[in-house]
Design a protein around this nucleic acid. Structure first.
Length: 781
DNA sequence: CTGGAGGATCTTTTT
DNA sequence: GATCCTCCAG
């Protein structure tokens, strides 16, 4: 196999000449470069230790980004490398963007030359594009998003004769993702794991999926890492060139790297060995995505001679907040251990509040926010950080009623909306017709009478002849295999695409996009749609075309959105932020609300079920991330009842609440609207005992329950067993409540079971009518 | 082939 | 509660 030579451009071996009279000269002369001012000694050491492997353990709020950007500026200014010789990887686009901006502030336009600053995935694409043929791809390959991936997998599963009901495509997607994150090709998947899907056909389907991806000349997110890794492993000449190129490497959020990323970093770092990783083991919250905290824990072993610098001065939070967070995270066992010291004045203790239900929780937060606003605080400086996105709704509803402006960060994404994806499919096919998934998506949208049977026929053609669906459509449209109506429709569509493709050269791409959406009838389809959301969809289409304008070409635009699934939200308006704990990482707010600290929700049940103690520790880190976002104020709350799906569940306060050091927490006496259910009205809940000192040991009900569950070797599958504040003895043995059984429920009284669905029962209550409840809430009458 | 009705399933987090 | 899917009647 041959590999295209890497374009080395200006980046030859010789070090760049000194810039005359620039900062570099001054720095070399021993004068203080202005950007070094104001760094504390540790930060400064992290900036100036440029050569050799370096791990910077940067606790929350210790100025991590500042160190990273200053370090980059320093390397550039002292003439140690050209911008194009520095590899700088981040995890999120947001981080990459911010980094670029801040470096720009420090050193100006030189940042433009930093072509290798970006997310792992963005850099992966770049490398893969120049060596596509080594991975069996053509350079113009397309990048599938999760949605496409699932649809492709569904086809494969169906073709393999596997019941998709029993073996959901999602599950297979998860497994494949997991394998890719660990750098495993189909042949290397451990036999045991391959067995986890479709009666042992997991690896086979994975192989088939990879083959299909090659046929349609596409990759998924995982491939962007996996394929690059394998190119490096199998082609030493290519690896060598990149090793030579990257004189300095910087990695942000190192604790979030997965095995594949770690392996490729390690390969590259064997060149100049100047790798600097910045991270915080206490903020590793992406284990579910394959991140290995272990990578950071064993950095010193992996990179011999590595220096480690700890940043422990926190400039963000008050001692109270930091104290609470530190106390909590200290419960984790697998960590390197840091002691954060606050550089700020003492503030208020963390407030802890109990609520009757989620709505009341939202009401209370709303009141707090209005009060703070009256005191002159900015909404922008407040955030509500939730564990799971379904929690957001209660707050949104409340804010709408109150008229409090809010923004949902990382909510339903623009590029994932149906109409946007449809529109993009049209554009993608115009740019590259062989994108089968895109073609299939819109071949009958808007409806043109080309139904499933017709599409199936084209598929057969495509598969038999080994060409794309689009090509098959061209062939079939010239035969009489399809009903006349479908054939004409198909011909018209193909002709349109031909015409649009022609126009790709001549017309400005935004104009072309409008023409495509018009002529295809797509816009008209929504104009004729009377549903309430149609208007919004049309606006989204407009917004899509508008955002295209920021790119030079259609191709550039399409490449961008494949990797950047979010749109920059304008942070300028004054709005309360609502987001998940995950997307809050790296941000800070004056006031932070942390609702929903309940067993089962936070820590999340699935995390415990699937990953046991490691899962619990990751949840705890998530809690730590949440608290440390706050600068001055943090309020933690939990509800005693929460509606999940359509059924009410009572819940226990999170075990994390027990773990907060008593000295930094104050329990809010909450006179709530459902008098009688406030603190103290229910006997057995631990929350009431809160008037006595907190216990800092693992002996609270929540913890004990966990212990019992683990001891039995069984995950805690069912929900906590409290009914209106009363701990109910749990009958763990199967209840075996059958249809027709007469049962008793604490809240709804007597009734008869009309339907059984696993542990969910539909019961016709004598007084309360029909309700759906979990079996653990009823007893046989 | 289309459209509507009814049913099942889901909700952790994301490049 | 919402969305996605399947099934059935036109």
């Amino acid at each position: 196999m041959t590999s295209r030579p890497i374009d080395l451009g200006d980046f030859e071996e010789a070090p760049p000449p000194q810039k005359p009279g620039g900062l570099s000269a001054r720095a070399l002369a021993g004068a203080e470069a202005p950007y070094l001012k104001g760094l504390n000694p540790e930060q400064r050491a992290a900036v100036e230790t440029t050569d050799g492997p370096l791990l910077v353990l940067a606790g929350a709020g210790t100025g991590k980004t500042r160190v990273l950007t200053t370090r980059l500026a320093h390397i550039l200014n002292t003439g140690k490398a050209w911008p194009g010789q520095i590899l700088c990887v981040t995890f999120t686009n947001k981080a990459a963007r911010e980094m670029r901006e801040r470096i720009g502030h420090l050193i100006g336009g030189v940042v433009e030359g930093m072509t290798w600053l970006g997310t792992f995935h963005a850099i992966g694409v770049k490398i893969l594009r120049s060596h596509a043929e080594l991975a069996g791809l053509k350079s113009g390959f397309s990048i599938l998003d999760t949605d496409d991936q699932i649809r492709l997998l569904k086809q494969i599963i169906e073709a393999a004769g596997i019941d998709e009901k029993r073996w959901p495509a999602r599950q297979l997607a998860g497994l494949i993702d997991n394998w890719k994150n660990r750098g495993l090709l189909p042949a290397r998947v451990p036999a045991g794991e391959a067995h986890a899907y479709g009666n042992g056909r997991g690896a086979e389907l994975y192989a088939e999926y990879q083959a299909r991806l090659r046929v349609v000349n596409a990759v998924d997110f995982g491939d962007l890492l996996l394929e690059v890794l394998h190119i490096f492993q199998d082609h030493p000449d290519v690896l060598k060139e990149y090793q030579r190129r990257f004189k300095y490497m910087l990695v942000d959020e190192y604790q979030d790297t997965n095995v594949a990323q770690y392996l490729w970093l390690r390969l590259l770092a064997q060149g100049h060995k100047n790798i600097c990783c910045v991270g915080d083991d206490d903020q590793s919250i992406y284990g579910w995505r394959g991140a290995e905290v272990d990578n950071i824990l064993r950095f010193e072993k992996d990179f011999p001679g590595a220096k480690v610098i700890r940043l422990e001065r926190n400039y963000r939070s008050t001692p109270q907040i930091l104290g609470a967070a530190s106390g909590l995270i200290a419960k984790n066992e697998s960590r390197l251990g840091k002691t954060l010291r606050s550089e700020r004045d003492d503030g208020d203790m963390i407030t802890l509040r109990s609520h009757w239900d989620g709505d009341e929780e939202a009401r209370a937060v709303g009141e707090d926010i209005e009060q703070l606003q009256r005191k002159g605080e900015k909404l922008n400086d407040m955030a509500i950080l939730v564990r799971a996105s379904f929690q957001m709704r209660a707050f949104e509803d409340r804010f709408i009623t109150l008229g409090v402006p809010y923004r949902v960060v990382g909510g339903p994404r623009f590029y994932e909306r149906q109409e946007v994806r449809d529109a993009l499919a049209y554009l993608k096919i115009t740019a590259s017709p062989d994108n089968d998934l895109a073609f299939e998506r819109i071949i009958n949208v808007p409806k043109r009478g080309i139904g499933d049977t017709s599409v199936k026929r084209m598929h057969e053609h495509a598969r038999k002849n080994g060409y794309s669906l689009y090509r098959a459509a061209e062939v079939v449209s010239q035969t009489d295999e399809l009903p006349a109506k479908a054939r004409t429709a198909l011909r018209t569509l193909l002709e349109s695409f031909g015409r649009w493709r022609q126009a790709l050269q001549g017309l400005p791409h935004t104009e072309l996009a409008e023409i495509i959406l018009d002529e295809s009838g797509y816009t008209t389809m929504w104009q004729n749609d009377k549903s309430p959301e149609a208007q919004g969809r049309l606006e989204n289409l407009k917004e899509l075309v508008r955002s295209m304008g920021e790119f030079e070409t259609m191709e550039g635009f399409l490449e961008h959105i494949a990797l950047v699934m979010d749109t920059e939200s304008n942070a300028s308006e004054d709005k309360v932020n609502i987001m998940t704990l995950h997307s809050a990482k790296g941000l800070e707010f004056g006031t932070v609300f942390l609702p929903g600290w309940e067993e089962g929700l936070f820590p999340h049940q699935r995390s415990l079920d699937e990953n046991g103690r490691a899962g619990l520790e990751e949840e705890r880190r998530l809690a730590y991330v949440g608290i440390t976002r706050a600068k001055r104020r943090a309020t933690i709350s939990f509800a005693q009842n929460r509606r999940v799906h359509n059924l009410w569940q009572s819940s226990l306060p999170s075990r994390f609440i027990d773990e907060l050091p008593e000295a930094h927490v104050e329990v809010a006496p909450m006179a709530n609207s459902y008098g009688g259910y406030g603190i103290g009205s229910y006997g057995t809940s631990r929350f009431e005992e809160r008037t006595t000192p907190f216990s800092n040991t693992y002996d609270t009900p929540g913890w004990q329950r966990a212990q019992r569950a683990y001891a039995k070797g069984e995950a805690m599958r069912s929900s906590p067993n409290i009914i209106e504040g009363q701990l109910v003895a749990r009958e763990t043995e199967g209840k075996n409540i059958a249809r027709g059984a007469r049962v008793f429920h604490q809240k709804f009284g007597y009734g008869r079971v009309s339907h059984v669905d696993g542990n969910k029962l539909t019961i016709d209550f004598d007084k309360a009518g029909e309700k759906r409840v979990l079996d653990s809430f009823v007893e046989l009458a």
